[in-house]
């Protein structure tokens, strides 16, 4: 059983929470301009990190608020929780070997899909290429 530190309610058992998967996936600002591949990237493609990972949880049987948690997916070590819009805790940045002050709130190398094909990300290119291969 994971003990999860809700930023509002404190430490609670995992069974009080609902899992929301990978954090910091930004919804496209201009959905009409998106290619199928960019949509696939937003909807389906995931980092699925083995190791320190930023993820969303919702305190379903408590304050019912969403927040982010930094946890190691291989060891289940919890580095700490942080509210939406805040930066991940320093323990997380230490674990990934990136000093917190040099980074914003998002992990290194993270994609931000904001527009159409012009801003297609590597994963979208992969999906595009996959389509060409099978065409």
């Amino acid at each position: 059983m994971l003990i999860i530190p809700c930023p509002w309610c404190g430490d609670r058992d995992e069974s009080e929470f609902k899992y929301g998967g990978e954090a910091h996936i930004e919804r496209p600002l201009d959905p009409d301009a998106l290619t199928d591949e960019a949509w696939a990237d937003f909807l389906f493609m995931r980092r699925n990190t083995k190791g320190p990972f930023l993820e969303r949880w919702m305190h379903a049987a408590g304050c019912r608020r969403w927040f982010n948690l930094a946890r190691d997916t291989a060891t289940n070590q919890v580095f700490g929780a942080y509210r939406i819009g805040e930066r991940a805790p320093a323990a997380y940045w230490d674990a990934v070997g990136q000093p917190a002050e040099k980074n914003g709130k998002t992990p290194p190398g993270w994609r931000v899909v904001t527009g159409g094909a012009a801003e297609a990300t590597p994963a979208a290119e992969v999906a595009l290429a996959a389509r060409k291969v099978s065409a």
């Binding site: 995931r46 699925n48 994963a123």
Partner: peptide, 18 residues
């Protein structure tokens, strides 16, 4: 279980969660 990890070594990201 580790499909994403191995695919990542080849530079691919997958629609998989473990």
């Amino acid at each position: 279980g580790h499909t994403s990890v191995l695919a990542g070594m080849a530079g691919l990201r997958l629609p998989i969660t473990s």
